[in-house]
Design a protein around this nucleic acid. Structure first.
Lengths: 187, 187
DNA sequence: TCGATTTCTTATCATTTGTAAAGAATTGCC
DNA sequence: GGCAATTCTTTACAAATGATAAGAAATCGA
């Protein structure tokens, strides 16, 4: 479990008691490539930490498969809009590689907030950082061209091309695969 | 100050001591229409509650004025990407109407988190809700047409047309004013 | 109130992106 | 390895959006 707590430490220190408490509500899972870690339709009650592999959050808009976001090793993934609203999510989490994840039971985690202020603070900071990323993504989608967004993505995740089919990248950028092909063609 | 605490109560109850502590780091300001509540370039160290009036967060992309978001009375407004990262913001807050706001000193607020867990929890929940909204906005920008986004906006803020120039609405939707005019023309 | 400024619309043309379809390339699986 | 399925690219055409400019409408300030 060390990679997880190394990740946590970047945000907020935890007492040993807090670490033990988090471990008690966490389990390790291995999921095969292409399989759903969480299917579309349920309320999000689990926060995942990816130890190895990668995943995407996806949903359907008019029968078209849309990728909302990617997550790589040593990152947290959760369907925030469901986790914090209690509403069922129209989104699912699919593994893009055979992966090993740590599943943290969010219902129990939120209960720990009362006993362990450092845990509440830790996740506050983690999600604040996620919030910042999301705000920056809005800026990108709002007024950067598809080509700029593609270049930005390559900058941020240089190895994404080796790991993710272009159709998912296209959907993530908000364009069609055909459009992405065109952008890539004009080298 | 009651509207502010009424707003807070929707998210998390506060002890009287906590309320007093928040009041001690808050001041009321009146800003004229068109003026900047916060100029572009500084690190965001203030969280505002709009008692009366409205505002927008804006920035420049290639000399074009972009509206990132609007905020109306009884809402919080802050440049989140700067507040939580400590980096200077390329964004400013401009009042779209002569407004009355409550300015909460964020530096002092974050210090209160250590003494008043209920305050930390309150703002955690407020920003979690903001995070959810932002995630939903991504979905809208990623794969809804400009016309859909316009209709959605009217649904959410029916009176926005009476309060905000169309050029800002266009920028918010991620299109040019000319494009918005066209969408509106085809009734 | 009136003139000046800003905002909004309309028109034209260029560019970008989408759709559909077909073939090439790659990947997956037995 | 080799076949099937999937993914990717390319092409042609349609639709949406951007850029520019000019005029109409609304707003602002003295």
């Amino acid at each position: 479990m060390t990679p997880l707590f190394r990740f946590f430490e970047q945000y907020n220190p935890l007492t040993d008691a807090a670490k033990t408490a988090i471990q008690a509500i966490s389990t390790t899972q291995t999921i095969k490539k292409g399989h759903d870690l969480q299917p579309i339709g349920h309320t999000c009650r689990t926060i995942y930490f990816i130890q190895k592999g990668m995943a995407r959050i996806y949903y359907y808009k008019d029968d078209v498969d849309i990728t909302e976001s990617f997550a790589f090793e040593n990152q947290i993934i959760a369907r925030v809009e469901s986790l914090f609203s209690g509403k069922a999510s129209r989104k699912g989490i699919q593994m893009l590689e055979t992966s090993e994840v740590i599943a943290i039971n969010a219902t129990q985690l939120f209960r720990l907030y009362d006993t362990f202020p450092d845990i509440e603070r830790l996740f506050r900071k983690i999600f604040e950082a996620g919030y910042v990323e999301t705000v920056n993504r809005i800026e990108s989608l709002q007024f950067h061209s598809a080509e700029e967004r593609y270049r930005d993505l390559l900058q941020t995740s240089p190895n994404i091309l080796q790991r993710v089919p272009l159709k998912h990248i296209a959907a993530y950028l908000g364009i069609t695969p055909v459009s992405l092909s065109r952008i890539r063609a004009q080298h």
